[in-house]
Structure formats: C-alpha cells, structure tokens
C-alpha cells in the first residue's frame, strides 16, 4: 500500500529536485540574485499574478488567441485534409507546396501578414492559424491516405457507398493521425501567438508580459510569466491527450 503511494509520487521527484537545485544555486550566491531570484520570491510573483493579478488576464488573452487560431485551423484544414488524403493524385500535386510552407518558419511570414492585415489582433491569430493548419492538414491527409484498406473493403463488400465508406470508416480510421496533427498544431499556435505578442505591437498577452518584465528588469515577474506560459503549453498538450483518449479509445490497439 505505502509502496504504491510512494510510487505515485515519483513523477514529482524531478520537480522537487529541480526547485531544490534552484534554491541551492540561489543560496550559493554564484549568480546575481537580480538575475536569479529565490524560488520563494518567484512563487510569490506567480501567486500574486494569478490571484487577482494582471498575469491571469494576460494568460487568458493568450489562451483565447491560441484557441481561436487553433479552431480556425481545424475548421479549414480537417475537411481539406480529408479531401486531399482521399486522392493520392490530388495529394501528390500539392505535396510539395504543403511541405514547402510547412518548412518555412511561420514567424518569417509576420511581415507579410502585417502588410495584409495590419498591426492588430487578426495578424497574430492569422499567422498562428496558418502554421497550425498546415500541421493539421498534412496529418489528416496522411491519416486518410494510410487508413487500413481492409476495413474500407469490409464496408464496401457490405454494400456501403463510397460516401458511407468515407464517413463510417476512413474518417474514423484517420482520427488518431488527425489528433496528432491537432496536438502539434495547438502547441505550434501557442508558440506563434507568444512570439507575436512579443514583437508586433502588443499591449497584452503572456509574450508581451515577458518582454515588459525583461525591460524593467523585474525578474520574479518574468519567471512567473515564463512559468505561466509553460503551464499553458503543458496544459494544452495534456488536455488534448485526454480528449484523444476519450475519442480514439481504440488507438494503438
């Protein structure tokens, strides 16, 4: 019993050691305490920021932008991915294009989007949505293309029309891969949104908050914001894994 309970705590060991090492480093005064505040000060900044502080509102703004970009990306690229994936010829005709833009750092597109959409909310969301949609697009297309042929054949021999085979079999068959695309897509959207908040005339969001903290040399604030961004990234990933497990319960079986 006790053994089991202790085993459940093992994942925390790394985190505890990390904080302890941080504290040791701080206490040894090897690094300027301005650059490396104590864990206590940083936790206090996180606490103050989240409880009625401005950190929580910046956090929520970044969440909103990321999810908006993600939803736009899903709406556009899942249907297109399915269409592309269901025809090998169609996919190979655009494969180069997708691979090219996927390999192009999305951040290099900021100036282009700035020219088109201006310095506003739209640009940040558009660039993030663009990057995420390529990831979702090709993952969905691959999922459809690599769907097991036996199940489609089974449905066909039972008399399913092409449309029914697509709807009842191929779509579900490609779902695990689509989820991979969505998970990487949402992480990617977060990266782009944070970068956009740092550099394109933002007045809010976690990215802007990090940069501000850096400019006024408020290190606890900066660590707190970085930590919040980490929590967000980790949380989104975890959320998607949980959703995936619920929806694709057969995955890997």
């Amino acid at each position: 019993m006790l053994r089991n309970k202790l085993a459940a705590l093992t994942p925390a060991v790394g985190a505890i050691l990390f904080v302890f090492a941080w504290w040791l480093l701080y206490a040894s005064k090897l690094i300027d305490p301005v650059l490396l505040p104590s864990p206590q000060d940083s936790f206090k900044a996180i606490w103050d920021g989240f409880v009625g502080g401005a950190l929580i509102s910046d956090f929520l703004i970044t969440v909103r932008r990321t999810l908006l970009a993600f939803v736009i990306a899903v709406i556009i690229s899942v249907p297109f991915g399915i269409i592309l994936g269901s025809s090998v010829r169609l996919y190979s005709s655009v494969e180069f294009l997708i691979d090219f833009f996927r390999s192009t750092p999305a951040s290099a597109l900021f100036p282009l989007f700035l020219v088109i959409l201006g310095v506003g909310e739209e640009t940040k969301i558009a660039v993030a949505a663009f990057g995420a949609s390529l990831l979702i697009l090709f993952n969905t297309a691959y999922g459809v293309m690599n769907a097991r042929k036996t199940r489609q054949a089974a449905a066909r021999v039972m008399g399913a029309s092409r449309f029914r085979v697509m709807l009842d079999v191929t779509l579900l068959e490609s779902l695990p891969q689509t989820f991979v695309g969505m998970r990487t897509g949402v992480s990617f959207a977060l990266v782009i949104v944070i970068v956009a908040e740092m550099f394109i005339g933002s007045t809010d969001g976690l990215g802007q908050r990090v940069i501000n903290a850096q400019m006024i040399f408020n290190m606890p604030e900066m660590y707190a914001t970085i930590f919040a961004a980490g929590v967000l990234g980790y949380g989104l990933n975890l959320l998607f894994i949980l959703i995936e497990r619920k929806f694709v319960h057969w995955g890997g079986k």
């Binding site: 036996t150 199940r151 089974a154 009842d168 579900l172 319960h249 079986k253």
Partner: peptide
C-alpha cells in the same frame, strides 16, 4: 458477405 483472415483489421474498433 465476406469474412477476412485478419479480423483485427476487418472489424471496426470504434
């Protein structure tokens, strides 16, 4: 009707 050798790939796991 058709019964496939590979039932794992012929049944719908969802």
């Amino acid at each position: 009707s058709y019964v496939f050798q590979n039932y794992r790939e012929a049944l719908f796991p969802w």
